Computed example of a mutant assay.
Amino acid sequence: MSTTKFIPALGYDFLSDYYDLAIKLTMPEKKFRNKLIDYVNPQENEKILEFGFGTAQNIIILKQRFPNCNIQGVDIDPKIKTIAEYKLNRAGIETPLFLYDGDKLPFEGNSFDKVYSSLVFHQLDMITKLKCLLEIYRILKPNGELIIGDWGKAKTKWMRFSFYLVQLLDGFKTTTDNVNGLMIKYITDAGFKNVQEVDYINTSIGTYSYYKAEKIN
């Protein structure tokens, strides 16, 4: 169970039930989620973790496209886990979902071939961003891959203006680093190599960027 204060999916706990609707209304959901799965690109026998599984929409798409992939999920929010379990059950998908306390991920070191995450890091302050990235580094196997999809540096002035809506919901303290393009720095500071922004999609509320990195030992 979580012992660390966290920002719920839409900034406030009472809005969590409306998270999927908010994404559908403000973002090209099919495009940005499938592109994320394209970058995860699960291979045979790989063990994959979604850090911050949210309402499990990414896991559902992943399992529909790659039914045999070994995917697990971890999140800090008990309410969102209940929503995710309901959706997975309705979709007929069995996937282990774990809660963690915001401190140490409940996995041994060198456990996963890939870890991916979507729309999580913009909700974390600077210290927590780095702390989570260090934990992800720990649980990745040597030569493991990290894939992050999240708000990045605005590609146009309109993208920067529209992102204020996200900042009003999730807080300026946590989101400013993302829109200033600092995710690459944080990922690098956690020890990852070959860190790069590989792609992006402009949405109605900001620029959603894709980052890839490797754990090279």
Rank of each mutant, 00 (worst) to 15 (best):
I187G: 07
Y86N: 14
A9C: 10
D199W: 03
D103T: 15
Q196C: 03
T128C: 06
I201C: 05
N58K: 03
N110K: 11
F192G: 03
A22L: 09
F172I: 08
I147E: 09
G149Y: 04
K153V: 06
D125W: 04
M1R: 14
F121P: 05
G54L: 04
P28S: 11
A56D: 07
G102Q: 04
F192K: 08
V120D: 01
K81W: 08
P78R: 00
F121D: 04
P106L: 06
N202E: 13
Q64A: 04
K79V: 04
L97K: 11
R90D: 13
N34D: 12
T175E: 10
I201L: 06
Y164D: 11
C132E: 10
V74C: 08
F14S: 14
D101K: 09
D199N: 05
P142G: 05
E50Q: 12
K35F: 09
F161A: 15
L105Y: 12
S111E: 12
I201Q: 04
K114F: 00
L36M: 10
Q196G: 11
I37P: 02
D189F: 09
M27E: 11
D170E: 14
F121K: 01
K104P: 10
K153W: 11
E214H: 09
L10H: 14
M27D: 11
E29G: 10
C69N: 07
Q72G: 08
S2Y: 12
I61P: 07
F51P: 09
T95P: 12
I59E: 03
L182C: 10
V195C: 06
L133Q: 05
D77Y: 05
M183A: 07
G109Q: 14
L49C: 06
M1D: 14
K193P: 03
G191M: 02
I59T: 03
F172G: 08
E197F: 01
C132V: 02
L140N: 03
T188L: 05
L62N: 09
T156R: 07
F32P: 05
Y12Q: 15
F53I: 00
H122G: 04
Y18M: 10
I76L: 02
K87L: 07
G52F: 02
I48Y: 04
L140A: 06
Y137A: 01
D20N: 10
N202I: 04
E94V: 11
Y164G: 01
N45P: 04
K193D: 13
K155R: 13
E145Y: 09
Y164F: 15
W158M: 13
Y116W: 08
R65P: 02
T174K: 11
Y137T: 00
G11E: 05
I187C: 04
L140I: 02
K31E: 14
Q123L: 05
F121Y: 10
N143R: 13
K104N: 15
L25D: 12
T3A: 13
S209F: 01
L133C: 03
P106F: 07
E145R: 14
Q57N: 15
I216T: 14
I23H: 13
E94R: 14
F51L: 10
S162E: 07
I136S: 10
L168T: 15
I76A: 02
G11M: 06
L105P: 12
G73M: 01
C132K: 08
N202D: 15
A213D: 01
K30Y: 14
E44Q: 13
T156P: 08
Y12E: 15
Y137L: 00
D170C: 09
N34I: 00
F107H: 04
K5N: 15
K129A: 03
I48F: 03
G73E: 02
